[in-house]
Design a protein around this nucleic acid. Structure first.
Lengths: 201, 201
DNA sequence: TGTACATCAGTGAACGCGCGTTCACTGATGTAC
DNA sequence: TGTACATCAGTGAACGCGCGTTCACTGATGTAC
């Protein structure tokens, strides 16, 4: 009985591990292709398996995409939490610079997030998942603003600041005739303008 | 000779008019469907013509989409310019509220704009058109900030404020379990938080 | 230890679909004489 | 005024493609006796 359970557990873990291999591959493809052009076949090729195999691990394409997105969201929250925990006095300029840099370097996370934000055909369940992720991000910014000793309610500040940083990432990503680095510099400059505004009491 | 020219002119104008019929139809379809799901066949159906006919007026799908986008951008700039011209002392809260409301009501313009901002496969020419439109928007915000007697350089403020408003529109559009009106209210509230920050010197 | 059977991951081929685009044709209108 | 011809907007049918998904099969591994 004990053995049987262990064997079953092992099997479950193996299944999970194979799912992860596919999700890893998906993430790599998303890093390289626009979200809407990524196909099941692309991901299978990246994972080195037949595209039919994917259906042993995910019921359909949407489920796989959502899995990849959730992982991405976890990464973002994780990074932000680490950043803010280490910021003693709540240095909003440093935090926003690091956050932006992280999302520029991991563009696929940002593209996945905005894709889901903009998609008008999301199921209620998926919208809830998206918002759960957003709430976790807001929670982190709440902590930051509390460290800054804001007297006004922090939640609206978090909403506003998170939205503003998203806007910077979207608005300047296709700046023409500029190197990736010049674009990054410009984003950081504009983010600093915004962060400064949020400094003042 | 004179007659011939007039006839030719007439023909050109008629051709332009028919192009406009198609672009109108496209705009209506974009108002109702996510950008990436709009097909040539959809637009033809909306315009009441055969889908093959579209190719008499546009060389390919991308050209038609770009035409629709340019029209949308013109509308946005037009609206913003009117708004700011009528704002005597540069009331940033009113302007941002009106701008947001306009883009919420005309969601297709906003979706088209963000679609092109996010698309990684744009031709250099198209990126330039997108940026030309953005520059016109920045110009308008420049005027607003000058009316507000800002002593700092206005251009970075315009960049920051425009980006922040975009961010608000993207971040809260899929707020779950809320009516369209509640979402609008929330966007306006967060935009006001941001506008207030931009008030202070 | 050997044999018959069950399970199930993995697969190549196929299905059905919608898409952008092209083609060959029609028919209305204008032009030349 | 009548006739032969040119132009060209409009079209239904077709092409070729890539997609998500399903199917029928293989072959490796574990199980029962």
């Amino acid at each position: 009985m004990k053995d049987k359970n262990t064997f079953a557990d092992l099997k479950t873990r193996e299944k999970k591990a194979r799912q992860d291999v596919i999700t890893d591959a998906a993430e790599r493809v998303f890093a390289v292709k626009p979200f809407s052009k990524v196909s099941i076949r692309d991901i299978a090729r990246e994972a080195g398996i037949s595209h039919a195999s994917i259906y042993r691990y995910f019921p359909d394409q949407q489920s796989l995409f959502v899995e990849a997105f959730i992982r991405g969201a976890r990464e973002i929250v994780q990074f932000l939490a680490d950043m803010i925990r280490n910021s003693e006095k709540g240095d909003i300029e440093k935090v926003s610079e690091a956050y932006l840099t992280y999302l520029i370097m991991n563009d696929q996370y940002f593209r996945m997030m905005t894709h889901f934000m903009l998609d008008g055909t999301l199921s209620a369940e998926l919208i809830e998942k998206l918002n759960a992720a957003e709430r976790q991000i807001f929670d982190q910014f709440d902590i930051l603003f509390r460290k800054m000793k804001k007297r006004e309610p922090v939640r609206p500040l978090s909403h506003a600041f998170f939205a503003a940083l998203n806007g910077v990432l979207i608005t300047f990503r296709n700046y023409p005739g500029r190197s990736k680095d010049a674009v990054r510099q410009h984003m950081l400059k504009i983010a600093k303008v915004i962060a400064t505004k949020f400094l003042a009491e």
